[in-house]
């Protein structure tokens, strides 16, 4: 609930770039009025851990990009990654976003039973 509100208000202020009282009121009412879907509530701890992951993902992505450029990765393979089963949709979405954001790995498919098919590039040649 609060996370939603903060997210929408951030987008609103970035869009309008205007911090007058009238604008704040309009933004607040719009972000309260927009419908939202029902999802399982997440604990604060999960949010904190995912926030940490997001902040870490950006430098990690650049490190991987330089790694890809300096040492050519020519091989590709598929792996399955296990995650916990009961996660809310938003957390699953963020997980997929984070995995796909780093250039070495891309999520190809998400299975309801709780694992992702991940495609990645590697260095070692196939025997």
């Amino acid at each position: 609930m609060v996370g939603h509100l903060i997210f929408r208000l951030t987008i609103w202020f970035l869009l309008t770039a205007n911090l007058s009282w009238l604008n704040i009121l309009i933004g607040l009412s719009i972000s309260l009025l927009l419908p939202r879907g029902y999802t399982n509530p997440e604990t604060l701890k999960e949010w904190l851990s995912i926030l940490g992951k997001i902040l870490w993902a950006i430098p990690l992505a650049y490190i991987e990009a330089f790694d890809l450029i300096l040492r050519p990765h020519n091989d590709e393979d598929m792996v399955c990654e296990q995650v916990e089963k009961k996660r809310s949709h938003r957390l699953v979405f963020l997980d997929i976003l984070l995995i796909t954001f780093t250039p070495k790995t891309i999520v190809v498919k998400y299975h309801e039973e709780g694992w992702y098919e991940v495609h990645r590039v590697t260095r070692r040649k196939k025997p």
Binding site: A65, L68, I69, E76, T100, F101, P103, I106, H119, V121
Partner: peptide
């Protein structure tokens, strides 16, 4: 393959 190109495009 498409997926390999996708990796480099994401870079």
């Amino acid at each position: 393959s498409v997926l390999f190109k996708l990796h480099s495009l994401s870079v």
